[in-house]
Computed example of a mutant assay.
Amino acid sequence: MAYTIDRYPCEESPRLGAMTLHPEPESVSRARRWFRKFIAPYNPACSVDDCVLMISELVTNAIRYGEAEGPWLVRVEWFREGTSLRVEVHNPGFPASVRLRHPDADDAHGRGLLLVDATADSWHSGPSHFGGTVVSFVVADAWPT
């Protein structure tokens, strides 16, 4: 796994960190672990556990629904925007395939975006500037003013 982190964010670079992950199940736990480690120095006031849950769901979806003809990676980036935290998960899938589902009680899948929708202040999906799809969430007031 490769990762990068910006330890000294400034106005021109609000990115706090990023990681790239192979599209395999083990990457979900890696994403949780590395996000916890790299967000800790910034001392967010929001629930890191909630963020980790949402990252788990989005990375799982990226791995499950991402597709490309050749080898590909999932990319996770997190940004400070004023007092908010924005986390993006990129994969090479098609943006049109991202939708909020309402599964039946006996459905085994389909609750990831429902969890994100219920936990985040907002979320968005669309074309990624890396190509493919990005799904992001925002936690408002992640840092005191």
Score class of each variant (00 low, 15 high):
67 E>F: 04
8 Y>V: 03
81 E>A: 13
142 A>H: 04
7 R>D: 00
141 D>W: 06
22 H>Q: 11
18 A>W: 02
101 R>W: 05
61 N>G: 03
106 D>Q: 06
102 H>N: 14
137 F>K: 06
9 P>T: 02
87 V>P: 10
27 S>D: 01
126 G>C: 02
127 P>K: 12
120 A>C: 06
114 L>N: 09
60 T>D: 15
17 G>W: 06
98 V>P: 07
100 L>I: 01
86 R>A: 01
70 G>K: 07
143 W>T: 06
125 S>E: 11
122 S>T: 04
79 F>N: 06
65 Y>C: 04
50 D>E: 14
63 I>D: 00
63 I>E: 00
89 V>E: 01
129 H>M: 10
125 S>H: 15
11 E>W: 11
102 H>L: 12
82 G>E: 14
83 T>C: 15
43 N>C: 12
76 V>M: 13
85 L>M: 04
30 R>S: 15
25 P>T: 04
118 A>P: 09
132 G>C: 04
22 H>P: 06
2 A>M: 09
108 A>F: 08
128 S>F: 01
145 T>C: 11
45 A>M: 08
97 S>W: 15
40 A>Y: 04
107 D>T: 03
58 L>Q: 09
72 W>Q: 00
75 R>T: 15
11 E>F: 13
62 A>I: 01
93 G>N: 00
30 R>A: 15
106 D>L: 07
31 A>F: 07
113 L>P: 13
137 F>M: 06
51 C>I: 12
35 F>D: 06
1 M>E: 04
4 T>W: 06
104 D>F: 02
39 I>T: 04
116 V>E: 08
18 A>M: 14
90 H>P: 10
119 T>I: 12
100 L>Q: 03
41 P>E: 03
123 W>V: 05
38 F>R: 12
125 S>F: 12
141 D>L: 02
9 P>E: 01
144 P>I: 08
88 E>W: 04
88 E>A: 05
31 A>I: 08
10 C>M: 09
29 S>Q: 14
98 V>L: 03
79 F>T: 02
91 N>P: 14
81 E>R: 15
19 M>G: 02
24 E>Y: 00
120 A>S: 10
109 H>L: 12
122 S>G: 14
28 V>K: 04
56 S>Q: 15
47 S>A: 09
28 V>R: 02
47 S>T: 00
121 D>S: 13
14 P>Y: 00
8 Y>R: 09
134 V>R: 05
60 T>E: 14
56 S>L: 10
121 D>E: 07
29 S>A: 15
87 V>K: 02
